[in-house]
Amino acid sequence: MQQKIQQALHQISQVVLGKEDKIKQALCCMFSNGHLLIEDLPGMGKTTLAHALSRVFGLSYQRIQFTSDLLPADVLGVSVYSQKSERFEFHQGPIFSQLLLADEINRSTPKTQSALLEAMEEGQVTVDGSTRQLPAPFFVIATQNPSTQTGTFPLPESQLDRFLMCIELGYPDPRFERVLLKQGDARALIDNLSVCISPSELQDMQEQIKLVQTSDKLLDYIQRLIAFSRAPQRFNYGLSPRGALGLIACAKTWAFMDSRSYVVPEDVQAVLPSVVKHRLQSGINASEAGAAQSLLAEVAVV
Protein backbone atom coordinates (compact mmCIF):
# COMPACT_ATOMS: atom_id res chain seq x y z
CA MET A 1 0.00 0.00 0.00
CA GLN A 2 2.72 2.43 0.97
CA GLN A 3 4.42 1.49 -2.26
CA LYS A 4 1.47 2.79 -4.16
CA ILE A 5 1.59 6.01 -2.28
CA GLN A 6 5.26 6.34 -3.13
CA GLN A 7 4.44 5.67 -6.72
CA ALA A 8 1.74 8.35 -6.78
CA LEU A 9 4.14 10.76 -5.18
CA HIS A 10 6.74 9.97 -7.76
CA GLN A 11 4.32 10.40 -10.62
CA ILE A 12 3.11 13.79 -9.52
CA SER A 13 6.67 14.92 -8.87
CA GLN A 14 7.32 14.54 -12.55
CA VAL A 15 4.88 17.27 -13.41
CA VAL A 16 5.16 19.43 -10.31
CA LEU A 17 8.88 19.66 -9.97
CA GLY A 18 10.77 19.93 -6.70
CA LYS A 19 7.74 20.13 -4.44
CA GLU A 20 7.71 16.67 -3.00
CA ASP A 21 6.96 17.77 0.54
CA LYS A 22 3.98 19.82 -0.68
CA ILE A 23 2.72 16.96 -2.77
CA LYS A 24 2.98 14.70 0.22
CA GLN A 25 0.91 17.16 2.22
CA ALA A 26 -1.69 17.25 -0.54
CA LEU A 27 -1.82 13.47 -0.66
CA CYS A 28 -2.15 13.38 3.10
CA CYS A 29 -5.10 15.71 2.83
CA MET A 30 -6.80 13.47 0.30
CA PHE A 31 -6.19 10.31 2.30
CA SER A 32 -7.67 12.10 5.27
CA ASN A 33 -10.76 12.74 3.14
CA GLY A 34 -10.44 16.48 3.39
CA HIS A 35 -10.61 19.40 1.03
CA LEU A 36 -7.49 21.23 0.10
CA LEU A 37 -6.84 24.92 -0.28
CA ILE A 38 -3.81 25.98 -2.26
CA GLU A 39 -2.84 29.54 -1.69
CA ASP A 40 -0.33 31.13 -3.98
CA LEU A 41 0.38 33.56 -6.73
CA PRO A 42 -0.92 32.76 -10.23
CA GLY A 43 1.25 30.52 -12.33
CA MET A 44 2.90 28.59 -9.53
CA GLY A 45 1.55 25.19 -10.54
CA LYS A 46 -1.60 25.05 -8.45
CA THR A 47 -3.78 23.84 -11.29
CA THR A 48 -1.18 21.38 -12.48
CA LEU A 49 -1.00 19.84 -9.02
CA ALA A 50 -4.77 19.50 -8.80
CA HIS A 51 -4.98 18.00 -12.25
CA ALA A 52 -2.18 15.54 -11.57
CA LEU A 53 -3.85 14.46 -8.34
CA SER A 54 -7.06 13.64 -10.20
CA ARG A 55 -5.09 11.60 -12.69
CA VAL A 56 -3.20 9.41 -10.26
CA PHE A 57 -6.37 8.71 -8.30
CA GLY A 58 -8.33 8.06 -11.45
CA LEU A 59 -11.06 10.46 -10.44
CA SER A 60 -13.44 12.30 -12.71
CA TYR A 61 -12.21 15.81 -12.89
CA GLN A 62 -13.93 19.12 -13.42
CA ARG A 63 -12.58 22.56 -13.25
CA ILE A 64 -14.36 25.84 -12.62
CA GLN A 65 -12.61 29.08 -13.14
CA PHE A 66 -14.15 31.40 -10.59
CA THR A 67 -14.79 34.90 -11.79
CA SER A 68 -16.62 37.76 -10.26
CA ASP A 69 -19.75 37.16 -12.38
CA LEU A 70 -19.98 33.43 -11.69
CA LEU A 71 -23.36 32.46 -10.26
CA PRO A 72 -24.29 29.56 -7.97
CA ALA A 73 -26.16 27.92 -10.82
CA ASP A 74 -22.94 27.82 -12.82
CA VAL A 75 -21.47 25.66 -10.09
CA LEU A 76 -24.38 23.51 -9.00
CA GLY A 77 -26.37 23.11 -12.19
CA VAL A 78 -29.71 24.37 -13.40
CA SER A 79 -33.18 23.03 -14.31
CA VAL A 80 -34.11 23.66 -17.89
CA TYR A 81 -37.54 23.09 -19.46
CA SER A 82 -37.35 20.29 -21.98
CA GLN A 83 -39.86 20.52 -24.78
CA LYS A 84 -39.40 16.87 -25.59
CA SER A 85 -40.40 15.54 -22.20
CA GLU A 86 -42.47 18.61 -21.41
CA ARG A 87 -40.97 19.11 -18.00
CA PHE A 88 -37.98 20.60 -16.26
CA GLU A 89 -34.80 18.59 -16.48
CA PHE A 90 -31.87 19.15 -14.22
CA HIS A 91 -28.57 19.80 -15.89
CA GLN A 92 -25.75 18.95 -13.51
CA GLY A 93 -23.17 21.60 -12.94
CA PRO A 94 -19.46 20.99 -12.72
CA ILE A 95 -19.73 20.17 -9.01
CA PHE A 96 -21.00 16.70 -9.89
CA SER A 97 -17.58 15.22 -10.20
CA GLN A 98 -15.17 13.36 -7.93
CA LEU A 99 -12.52 15.99 -7.92
CA LEU A 100 -13.42 19.59 -8.41
CA LEU A 101 -10.82 22.20 -9.00
CA ALA A 102 -12.18 25.56 -7.93
CA ASP A 103 -9.68 27.90 -9.44
CA GLU A 104 -9.17 31.29 -7.85
CA ILE A 105 -12.10 30.79 -5.51
CA ASN A 106 -11.68 34.19 -3.97
CA ARG A 107 -12.34 35.96 -7.22
CA SER A 108 -16.05 35.10 -7.08
CA THR A 109 -18.72 36.75 -5.00
CA PRO A 110 -19.52 35.41 -1.55
CA LYS A 111 -22.84 33.99 -2.76
CA THR A 112 -21.17 31.63 -5.19
CA GLN A 113 -18.43 30.80 -2.71
CA SER A 114 -20.96 29.72 -0.14
CA ALA A 115 -22.86 27.58 -2.67
CA LEU A 116 -19.68 25.59 -3.20
CA LEU A 117 -18.69 25.47 0.39
CA GLU A 118 -22.11 24.17 1.45
CA ALA A 119 -21.77 21.34 -1.02
CA MET A 120 -18.31 20.59 0.36
CA GLU A 121 -19.59 20.22 3.86
CA GLU A 122 -22.76 18.23 3.15
CA GLY A 123 -21.64 16.10 0.21
CA GLN A 124 -24.94 16.91 -1.46
CA VAL A 125 -26.64 19.80 -3.20
CA THR A 126 -30.20 20.97 -3.09
CA VAL A 127 -31.54 22.58 -6.21
CA ASP A 128 -35.20 23.38 -6.85
CA GLY A 129 -36.27 21.62 -3.70
CA SER A 130 -34.74 18.25 -4.51
CA THR A 131 -31.58 17.01 -2.89
CA ARG A 132 -29.00 15.32 -5.04
CA GLN A 133 -26.07 13.26 -3.78
CA LEU A 134 -22.62 14.16 -5.03
CA PRO A 135 -20.42 11.30 -6.25
CA ALA A 136 -18.10 9.66 -3.72
CA PRO A 137 -15.28 10.25 -3.09
CA PHE A 138 -15.74 13.98 -3.47
CA PHE A 139 -12.80 16.30 -3.18
CA VAL A 140 -12.51 20.00 -3.69
CA ILE A 141 -9.17 21.53 -4.39
CA ALA A 142 -9.54 25.25 -4.30
CA THR A 143 -6.86 27.68 -5.23
CA GLN A 144 -6.73 31.15 -3.91
CA ASN A 145 -4.80 34.24 -4.86
CA PRO A 146 -3.24 36.15 -2.02
CA SER A 147 -5.96 38.42 -0.75
CA THR A 148 -3.76 41.44 -1.26
CA GLN A 149 -4.25 41.14 -5.01
CA THR A 150 -6.95 43.20 -6.65
CA GLY A 151 -10.40 41.78 -7.40
CA THR A 152 -10.56 39.31 -4.55
CA PHE A 153 -13.28 38.55 -2.00
CA PRO A 154 -11.49 37.00 0.95
CA LEU A 155 -13.11 33.86 2.30
CA PRO A 156 -14.49 34.36 5.79
CA GLU A 157 -12.93 32.39 8.66
CA SER A 158 -15.98 30.15 8.96
CA GLN A 159 -15.55 28.97 5.40
CA LEU A 160 -11.81 28.64 5.56
CA ASP A 161 -12.41 26.17 8.39
CA ARG A 162 -14.04 23.79 5.86
CA PHE A 163 -10.72 23.14 4.23
CA LEU A 164 -8.70 20.52 6.03
CA MET A 165 -5.38 21.85 4.86
CA CYS A 166 -3.99 24.93 3.30
CA ILE A 167 -0.66 24.79 1.52
CA GLU A 168 1.54 27.17 -0.35
CA LEU A 169 3.62 25.99 -3.22
CA GLY A 170 6.13 28.76 -3.51
CA TYR A 171 8.76 29.34 -6.11
CA PRO A 172 10.63 26.26 -7.28
CA ASP A 173 14.29 25.66 -6.56
CA PRO A 174 16.66 27.04 -9.20
CA ARG A 175 17.70 23.48 -9.97
CA PHE A 176 14.16 22.33 -10.69
CA GLU A 177 13.29 25.54 -12.39
CA ARG A 178 16.11 24.78 -14.86
CA VAL A 179 14.54 21.40 -15.61
CA LEU A 180 11.18 23.05 -16.01
CA LEU A 181 12.54 25.62 -18.42
CA LYS A 182 14.20 22.87 -20.45
CA GLN A 183 11.22 20.53 -20.72
CA GLY A 184 8.60 23.21 -21.30
CA ASP A 185 5.00 23.17 -20.13
CA ALA A 186 4.24 20.10 -18.03
CA ARG A 187 0.55 20.01 -18.89
CA ALA A 188 1.05 17.72 -21.82
CA LEU A 189 2.69 15.25 -19.46
CA ILE A 190 -0.33 15.07 -17.20
CA ASP A 191 -2.24 12.98 -19.70
CA ASN A 192 0.61 10.47 -19.64
CA LEU A 193 0.25 9.87 -15.92
CA SER A 194 -1.15 6.50 -15.03
CA VAL A 195 -3.69 5.76 -12.33
CA CYS A 196 -1.85 4.51 -9.22
CA ILE A 197 -4.62 4.30 -6.69
CA SER A 198 -8.15 3.45 -7.64
CA PRO A 199 -11.10 4.95 -5.77
CA SER A 200 -11.80 1.63 -4.05
CA GLU A 201 -8.19 1.36 -2.92
CA LEU A 202 -8.43 4.88 -1.64
CA GLN A 203 -11.43 3.89 0.40
CA ASP A 204 -9.53 0.88 1.80
CA MET A 205 -6.68 3.10 2.78
CA GLN A 206 -8.99 5.51 4.52
CA GLU A 207 -10.40 2.60 6.51
CA GLN A 208 -6.92 1.51 7.53
CA ILE A 209 -5.91 5.00 8.48
CA LYS A 210 -8.77 5.09 10.96
CA LEU A 211 -7.10 2.21 12.79
CA VAL A 212 -3.85 4.09 13.41
CA GLN A 213 -3.20 4.38 17.16
CA THR A 214 -3.15 7.65 19.08
CA SER A 215 -1.86 7.08 22.59
CA ASP A 216 -2.83 9.11 25.65
CA LYS A 217 0.55 10.73 25.66
CA LEU A 218 0.04 11.94 22.12
CA LEU A 219 -3.42 13.26 22.89
CA ASP A 220 -1.86 15.10 25.82
CA TYR A 221 0.50 16.75 23.40
CA ILE A 222 -2.30 17.69 21.04
CA GLN A 223 -4.32 19.13 23.89
CA ARG A 224 -1.34 21.18 24.98
CA LEU A 225 -1.08 22.52 21.45
CA ILE A 226 -4.75 23.41 21.39
CA ALA A 227 -4.63 25.03 24.80
CA PHE A 228 -1.61 27.03 23.79
CA SER A 229 -3.33 28.26 20.65
CA ARG A 230 -6.27 29.39 22.76
CA ALA A 231 -4.21 31.20 25.39
CA PRO A 232 -5.23 34.85 25.47
CA GLN A 233 -3.15 37.42 23.65
CA ARG A 234 -1.45 34.84 21.42
CA PHE A 235 -3.77 34.51 18.48
CA ASN A 236 -7.01 36.22 17.69
CA TYR A 237 -8.83 32.87 17.61
CA GLY A 238 -7.64 29.53 18.89
CA LEU A 239 -8.00 26.19 17.18
CA SER A 240 -11.59 25.00 16.87
CA PRO A 241 -12.54 21.43 17.83
CA ARG A 242 -12.97 20.76 14.09
CA GLY A 243 -9.44 21.98 13.58
CA ALA A 244 -8.23 19.68 16.35
CA LEU A 245 -10.01 16.69 14.80
CA GLY A 246 -8.50 17.58 11.45
CA LEU A 247 -5.07 17.73 13.06
CA ILE A 248 -5.44 14.22 14.46
CA ALA A 249 -6.81 12.87 11.18
CA CYS A 250 -3.90 14.29 9.22
CA ALA A 251 -1.36 13.09 11.77
CA LYS A 252 -2.80 9.58 11.48
CA THR A 253 -2.50 9.68 7.73
CA TRP A 254 1.04 10.94 8.01
CA ALA A 255 1.92 8.03 10.30
CA PHE A 256 0.23 5.65 7.86
CA MET A 257 2.20 7.06 4.96
CA ASP A 258 5.30 6.47 7.06
CA SER A 259 4.21 2.82 7.48
CA ARG A 260 3.59 3.19 11.18
CA SER A 261 0.58 1.98 13.08
CA TYR A 262 0.81 4.70 15.71
CA VAL A 263 1.18 8.45 15.67
CA VAL A 264 4.31 10.07 17.07
CA PRO A 265 4.67 13.79 17.82
CA GLU A 266 6.71 14.28 14.66
CA ASP A 267 3.66 13.33 12.59
CA VAL A 268 1.67 16.04 14.31
CA GLN A 269 4.46 18.50 13.80
CA ALA A 270 4.71 17.66 10.12
CA VAL A 271 1.06 18.34 9.34
CA LEU A 272 0.39 21.06 11.85
CA PRO A 273 1.55 24.05 9.78
CA SER A 274 -0.76 23.14 6.90
CA VAL A 275 -3.68 22.36 9.17
CA VAL A 276 -3.52 25.50 11.30
CA LYS A 277 -2.26 28.00 8.74
CA HIS A 278 -5.70 29.21 7.64
CA ARG A 279 -7.36 28.66 11.02
CA LEU A 280 -5.13 30.57 13.36
CA GLN A 281 -5.26 34.26 13.05
CA SER A 282 -2.12 35.30 14.81
CA GLY A 283 -1.88 38.31 17.06
CA ILE A 284 -0.96 41.69 15.75
CA ASN A 285 2.76 41.29 16.04
CA ALA A 286 3.52 37.86 14.66
CA SER A 287 3.24 36.96 10.99
CA GLU A 288 0.86 34.18 10.00
CA ALA A 289 3.63 31.77 9.23
CA GLY A 290 4.98 32.52 12.69
CA ALA A 291 1.78 31.24 14.28
CA ALA A 292 2.43 27.61 13.47
CA GLN A 293 6.12 28.00 14.15
CA SER A 294 5.55 29.46 17.59
CA LEU A 295 3.12 26.65 18.39
CA LEU A 296 5.69 24.07 17.42
CA ALA A 297 8.55 25.81 19.13
CA GLU A 298 6.89 26.60 22.42
CA VAL A 299 4.77 23.57 23.27
CA ALA A 300 6.68 20.81 25.00
CA VAL A 301 6.43 17.39 23.44
CA VAL A 302 6.58 15.43 26.67
Partner: peptide, 9 residues
Protein backbone atom coordinates in the same frame (compact mmCIF):
# COMPACT_ATOMS: atom_id res chain seq x y z
CA UNK B 1 16.93 18.12 23.23
CA UNK B 2 14.61 21.08 22.93
CA UNK B 3 11.40 20.77 24.90
CA UNK B 4 9.38 20.99 21.70
CA UNK B 5 11.50 18.45 19.86
CA UNK B 6 10.14 14.97 19.26
CA UNK B 7 12.20 11.87 19.91
CA UNK B 8 12.62 11.00 16.25
CA UNK B 9 13.80 14.43 15.25
Amino acid sequence: RGAAEGATD
